[in-house]
């Protein structure tokens, strides 16, 4: 069979994998942003007790590989009576990982708001809450947009690791097909194209966002 026929016949399966990659990424990213906002706010307001907990979470999540986090959720948790299906494990793992990356991005944005802005705010008599509400958050969130975009790309790439717990996303689909039909070149080609379709537009958007934020703060 020609390579082209092989590729054509595999497209319906890759289509399903593609959809699953997109869906899991989408849910994982939304969850990560929510967790990230909560964690960065706990840290920003130094909420007693909770902000130390948030810091521990950030360090543990950032300094361990997603693969081990997934193995823990999928294989070790059932031993203590907590059981999820593979896809839910993938989503929880991705949110556990992504939450800390997003939190660091937001915290970086808040810290990036210039001292002069804070001092001017204090000088006109804003309270701590007003300072956060009208000065730090609006500027901080826009400063953290490029970090957020970079994290989104990172998290989509990380979904390829879901293959280790046999979630039939893009990478798993390709490995399955290679295992069955031994046509590695064709299936790897479709796999790379699949990721390129998702990630190239995003990485172009990321470059534009970086320029825009740079323009916003430096004017060039």
């Amino acid at each position: 069979m020609s390579s082209w026929t092989i590729i054509q016949q595999s497209l319906p399966m890759f289509g399903k994998g593609f959809e699953l990659t997109l869906w899991l990424s989408f849910v994982g990213i939304i969850g990560s942003i929510i967790v990230g906002i909560i964690v960065s706010l706990l840290q920003y307001f130094n909420v007693p007790g909770l902000h130390q907990l948030a810091s521990i979470y950030v360090e543990v999540s950032r300094n361990t590989p997603l693969l081990i986090q997934l193995f823990f959720l999928y294989y070790a948790f059932p031993v203590i009576g907590i059981k999820f299906n593979a896809e839910l494990c993938g989503i929880i793992g991705l949110i556990f990982l992504g939450g800390s990356y997003m939190a660091e991005g937001f915290t970086g944005g808040f810290n990036g708001v210039s001292k002069g802005q804070l001092e001017s705010g204090k000088a006109i008599g804003l309270s701590r809450w007003q300072l956060a509400r009208y000065i730090v958050f609006p500027q901080g969130f826009s400063l953290s947009v490029p970090a957020m975009a970079a994290n989104i790309i990172f998290l989509i790439k990380e979904t390829s690791i879901f293959t280790v717990i046999a979630i039939p996303e893009l990478t798993n689909t390709a490995l399955d097909l290679i295992g069955m039909y031994y046509r590695s070149n064709e299936y790897l080609f479709v796999l790379v194209v699949g990721y390129a379709i998702i990630l190239i537009p995003l990485s172009i958007i990321l470059t534009l966002l970086e320029k825009r934020v740079r323009y916003g703060s430096f004017g060039n």
């Binding site: 690791i161 293959t163 990478t171 070149n185 796999l191 790379v192 990721y195 190239i200």
Partner: peptide, 21 residues
Amino acid sequence: EFFRIVPTVVLLFLFYYILPR
């Protein structure tokens, strides 16, 4: 850009299958 866009898992398999074949 190639190494940035292709996930590392996929990079490993690309080399794993394509170099020997």
